[in-house]
Amino acid sequence: MSIQHFRVALIPFFAAFCLPVFAHPETLVKVKDAEDQLGARVGYIELDLNSGKILESFRPEERFPMMSTFKVLLCGAVLSRVDAGQEQLGRRIHYSQNDLVEYSPVTEKHLTDGMTVRELCSAAITMSDNTAANLLLTTIGGPKELTAFLHNMGDHVTRLDRWEPELNEAIPNDERDTTMPAAMATTLRKLLTGELLTLASRQQLIDWMEADKVAGPLLRSALPAGWFIADKSGAGERGSRGIIAALGPDGKPSRIVVIYTTGSQATMDERNRQIAEIGASLIKHW
């Protein structure tokens, strides 16, 4: 067993022997301040990774656009098919120029040779490549099948209805392509620590998230040296922004954090800054 596999296998073990965790309302004060600064709703939840206990939450059962955070769930569904012998990570998928959609920095470079399922998941999570996500959605049967996968996990809230990039439209009061912070946090925890996926697939999923290259201005910008984070960000229309993450000190994750916002007129930089400040408060009061 590799060191990384050992780390993920012992996530519940280490967490069980940690000192009790206590909620700190100071972080919620910052979440509410972010709402004021952005002029928009902000949803927040913080779960203990081992027990699933909610440590703090704000608007945990209000719907927010998922945006690209759905790509972690998508690759979880792909990995479940791999575990069941219905898919192979090494299978190569070929596609054409007509398949390319807006923001496809990886797939646009491989029109000639195609990409493997493993490479597509890596591109979808680490670079948020939209064509990679659409190609992977095709392998599982489309958005409705991802929703069905989530329902089978016990998540009857999260739903995907459309493809990239239309799913980022974020129309107010439109339930399409949305989740709730509580539902997303619980589902992410199941994917990373539950028995739904094999140990190898859980490790692969967290490795992809740990290698995320496009979430630097968010929670990662607030992390002290030595902290662990595996995350996936999302951005959408109407001032929408979000991030889902597993993080913790001492090089291992111990909490799940989900943050979503929508309806702001603020710039992307300002949305990023507010999420980073929430992260800084979380870490300060850990």
Rank of each mutant, 00 (worst) to 15 (best):
M1L: 07
I3R: 09
Q4K: 12
Q4N: 15
H5L: 10
R7N: 11
V8F: 14
I11T: 08
P12C: 13
F14N: 02
F14E: 01
A15Y: 15
A16P: 09
P20F: 03
V21Y: 05
V21G: 08
F22Q: 10
F22M: 10
A23W: 03
P25F: 08
V29W: 15
V29Q: 14
V31G: 02
K32R: 14
D36Y: 12
D36W: 15
D36H: 11
Q37N: 15
L38K: 06
L38T: 09
G39L: 11
G39P: 05
A40D: 05
A40N: 08
R41W: 07
R41C: 07
G43K: 00
D48L: 04
D48V: 05
L49K: 04
S51T: 15
I54M: 11
I54L: 11
L55W: 07
L55E: 08
E56L: 08
E56G: 12
S57R: 11
S57D: 09
S57I: 07
S57K: 12
R63P: 08
F64G: 00
P65I: 03
P65R: 02
M66E: 02
M66H: 05
M66G: 06
M66K: 00
M67Q: 08
M67Y: 02
S68A: 00
S68K: 00
T69H: 07
T69L: 02
T69K: 01
L74A: 06
L74S: 03
C75M: 06
G76R: 00
V78I: 10
L79C: 04
D83T: 05
D83A: 05
A84H: 12
A84V: 12
G85I: 04
G85Y: 08
G85L: 08
Q86H: 13
E87L: 11
G90V: 12
G90Y: 12
H94R: 13
S96V: 11
Q97D: 13
N98P: 09
D99Q: 13
E102N: 10
E102G: 09
Y103R: 03
P105H: 06
P105L: 06
T107F: 02
T107Q: 01
E108H: 10
E108N: 10
H110P: 03
L111I: 13
L111K: 08
L111N: 06
T112A: 13
D113G: 11
D113Y: 12
M115Y: 03
T116W: 02
V117Y: 03
R118N: 15
E119L: 03
C121P: 00
S122V: 12
A124M: 07
I125P: 00
D129P: 00
T131I: 01
A133F: 01
A133L: 00
N134R: 04
L135S: 04
L137P: 00
T139N: 10
G142F: 01
P143H: 08
K144Q: 14
K144H: 10
L146F: 12
A148G: 14
L150K: 00
L150E: 02
L150S: 06
H151R: 15
N152D: 15
N152G: 13
N152Q: 15
N152P: 04
N152V: 10
M153R: 07
M153E: 08
M153H: 10
G154Y: 05
T158N: 01
R159M: 07
R159C: 06
L160P: 04
L160H: 06
P165K: 08
E166I: 13
E166L: 14
L167A: 08
L167P: 04
L167N: 07
N168K: 02
N168C: 06
I171K: 14
I171P: 07
D174E: 08
E175M: 14
R176S: 09
T178V: 05
T179N: 00
T179R: 00
A183F: 08
A183N: 09
M184S: 03
M184Q: 04
A185N: 00
L188A: 08
K190W: 09
K190S: 13
G194Q: 10
E195V: 07
L197H: 05
T198Y: 07
S201C: 07
R202W: 03
Q204R: 10
Q204W: 06
L205C: 03
L205Q: 02
I206V: 13
W208E: 03
W208I: 03
M209W: 03
A211G: 13
D212E: 04
D212K: 04
K213D: 02
A215Q: 05
A215G: 09
L218M: 10
L219K: 04
R220G: 04
R220C: 03
R220I: 03
R220N: 03
A222T: 14
A225V: 13
G226F: 06
W227E: 00
F228R: 07
A230E: 01
A230R: 01
D231F: 03
D231Q: 05
D231R: 03
K232Y: 00
K232T: 01
S233R: 01
G234C: 06
A235S: 08
G236L: 01
G236H: 02
R238E: 08
R238Y: 13
G239Y: 02
G239P: 01
S240A: 13
I243S: 02
I243V: 11
I243W: 04
I244G: 02
I244T: 06
I244F: 03
L247A: 05
L247W: 07
P249L: 06
K252Q: 14
K252R: 13
P253C: 11
S254P: 07
S254W: 09
I256M: 07
I256G: 02
V257H: 01
I259Q: 01
G263S: 07
S264P: 03
S264Q: 06
A266I: 06
A266N: 12
D269P: 10
E270W: 07
E270H: 10
R271T: 11
R273Y: 12
Q274L: 15
Q274P: 05
E277W: 06
I278M: 09
I278K: 00
A280G: 12
S281K: 14
S281G: 08
S281A: 15
H285D: 07
W286H: 04
